[in-house]
């Protein structure tokens, strides 16, 4: 409900014409601290409580007073002090504590005190709500920053992984080249050993040939 709708409901509230849900909505609005609506309600309530003064005067039975006073005397003064106060079902909160004339409410009333306490609690809740929303906004910003940082780090990590992969490939190629060179070297060594063996054989043949020529002459 908008404020205008709630304000329009104030005279109906004072007359007792609102449905429970509407009454509760207005109660909440009043407890939230709307001063114009509170003032207006007090004025209308002051009007409503004058209605019985315009009724047909019907005096109570003569016996009623005696009955009440004797009932009061027959029960201990404090017998029901511990009883919980009965709450009429129509009691629509402290806002229906009718006042007339409107100027009469004292500043230290229970209704005002309760209203003030609830108002303060609401302010605190709103403050904490605002504070936590600010805090959440800050956290969201930090989270976004962290996410962007994480994304950046992830891309860096991917680049490093790619470089590492390239290095591994290079290393594999180098290892293969080395193995190939080792094999060639081993082949060259074998050829060298073979040449040395052939050289030894030739040397032996040469020595044998020079011994035969000295005996011929």
């Amino acid at each position: 409900m908008t404020h205008d709708q709630l304000e329009a409901a104030v005279p109906l509230y004072a007359a007792g014409a609102l449905e429970r849900v509407e009454r509760q909505a207005l109660d909440v609005h009043l407890l939230s601290g709307c001063i114009p609506c509170r003032t207006m309600l007090k004025e209308y309530q002051s009007v409503a409580v004058t209605f019985p003064f315009g009724l047909t005067i019907t005096p109570p039975p003569r016996s009623l007073k005696g009955k009440i006073l004797s009932s009061r005397l027959s029960s201990p003064a404090d017998e029901s002090e511990t009883q919980p106060p009965s709450q009429p079902s129509l009691e629509p909160g402290q806002w229906m504590n009718h006042l007339f004339p409107p100027s009469s409410p004292p500043a230290t009333s229970f209704g005002w005190a309760l209203g003030t306490v609830i108002f303060v609690v609401l302010i605190i809740l709103v403050f904490f709500g605002w504070n936590s929303s600010t805090y959440m906004t800050e956290n969201m910003e930090k989270l976004a920053q962290l996410q962007s940082q994480a994304e950046e780090t992830g891309s860096q990590l991917a680049a490093l992984q790619q470089q590492l992969s390239e290095r591994e490939d290079t290393l594999t190629l180098t290892r293969e080249e080395l193995q190939r060179r080792m094999a060639e070297l081993a082949e060259v060594r074998d050829q060298l050993i073979q040449r040395e063996a052939e050289l030894e054989e030739l040397r032996a043949l040469l020595a044998e040939g020079s011994g035969r020529s000295t005996r011929i002459p």
């Binding site: 309530q45 002051s46 409580v49 402290q94 504590n97 009718h98 006042l99 007339f100 009469s104 409410p105 004292p106 230290t108 009333s109 229970f110 209704g111 005002w112 005190a113």
Partner: peptide
């Protein structure tokens, strides 16, 4: 007394 005048 916070509840207004007694008759009300």
């Amino acid at each position: 007394v916070g509840r207004g005048i007694p008759m009300a």
